[in-house]
Nucleic acid binder design. Structure first.
Lengths: 208, 208
DNA sequence: AGCATAAGCGGACTTTACCCCGGATGTGAT
DNA sequence: ATCACATCCGGGGTAAAGTCCGCTTATGCT
């Protein structure tokens, strides 16, 4: 009964479960953040204010989220859960079952709507010092697009490059190139235009 | 010879010439910024330090550039001058004279090289609170791409949308999706891959 | 040259992100 | 139940961004 026969290396990637209080605090902080966001907008969501309102120390906030942008990333990831399930097991054409090109088109429309709906948070989640993949936030797009492209016959295209290009073509406008007011105006009218633009783009790219 | 026969309204857009000392200070600040950048990297370029080293007040720095990111935007714009001249009057295929599709392909390669070379500054110029066009920084790309696309027969495509999509596809990877180390590794090897990716993409989009 | 005025300047001040580390607490093993 | 230890908590401390406003100075007119 020596301790020798149990795995000593704790399976890289799951080094240890999160402590119960830590989990509670994380939830608490996210919930509070949403409240504040709804009431006062992104700018008023300061680290100190969040900590105080959540009844926790500032240090805790930082340990949980690392950075201010990290909070917004966490919120987005949270919202993306639902979205992700639709991709994995929702009805076609967004979910499985439809031809990949149709799914790609549907994905673009859905993602655009998502980005518009969460524009404030999405913008606030951008951290100049880090690339977007860091926050997972976009890995969803990148991975999904990659997965679909792979199923479409595309000649000798460089799949990785094309993936990142299309991801950027889809998300870039909202993350970088459209001003806040653009996006607001766009909420309904140009949202549709964007969706069509995406449809055109991927059709052009994928037609044989 | 009364003052009546000169324009009273100072031609909107050029409300007044910049004062001489202002111009001098701007130059001084940009020069100093470049020095500091070369010596110590972006992170050490703080507003206070810049002001002090340039022998000016902090207020001056802010009036000139508005924000920290603004300094980097100004530096980039500066570097883009040369670039822009190549587009307008350099040799083909980058400059005028070649078929638009070739110019578009050449532009992508050149722009990618530019973004890679200036990656640090470019990243630092991103201001989460503002859209990129604000800084002109990308208007160059957007306008040039738009101009070229316009010369290519593209069926009933939505030119504005396609422009912003392609701009994002070209620049997004460097601005958002590639980590600093990615880009460094990429300096030579994948730079080429990116250029090829761009060539493929625009060919796909533009083939009839 | 002298004047009126708008533009520019400086640097103290405020706010906020992010760091640090001594002390408290949950956890898994005995 | 107890213990050892990793993890977590708290909140004061630092540095840097961005604001403000009274003073200075260039500019263009007479």
């Amino acid at each position: 009964m020596s301790r020798v026969d149990r795995p000593v290396l704790p399976l890289v990637g799951a080094p240890r479960a999160e402590r119960a209080d830590a989990v509670r605090n994380r939830r608490q902080l996210l919930a509070t953040a949403r409240e504040m966001l709804a009431e006062q907008g992104v700018d008023k969501l300061t680290m100190d204010a969040l900590a105080e309102r959540a009844g926790l120390g500032k240090g805790t906030v930082y340990r949980r989220f690392g950075t201010r942008a990290g909070i917004f990333k966490a919120l987005i990831e949270d919202d993306e859960q639902i979205f992700q399930e639709l991709l994995l097991s929702g009805p076609p054409p967004l979910g499985p079952g439809a031809p990949p090109l149709d799914r790609l088109i549907a994905y673009g429309a859905a993602r655009a709507a998502f980005l518009i709906e969460h524009r404030e948070i999405v913008r606030a989640a951008i951290d100049g010092r880090q690339s977007v993949p860091a926050g997972t936030e976009m890995n969803l797009s990148r991975m999904h697009i990659r997965m679909l492209l792979r199923q479409i016959p595309l000649g000798a295209a460089d799949l990785d490059i094309l993936t990142v290009q299309l991801t950027a073509a889809l998300e870039g406008p909202f993350l970088l190139y459209l001003s806040a007011t653009d996006i607001s105006d766009l909420t309904l009218h140009t949202q549709e235009r964007t969706a069509q633009g995406w449809r055109d783009l991927v059709r052009r790219v994928c037609r044989s």
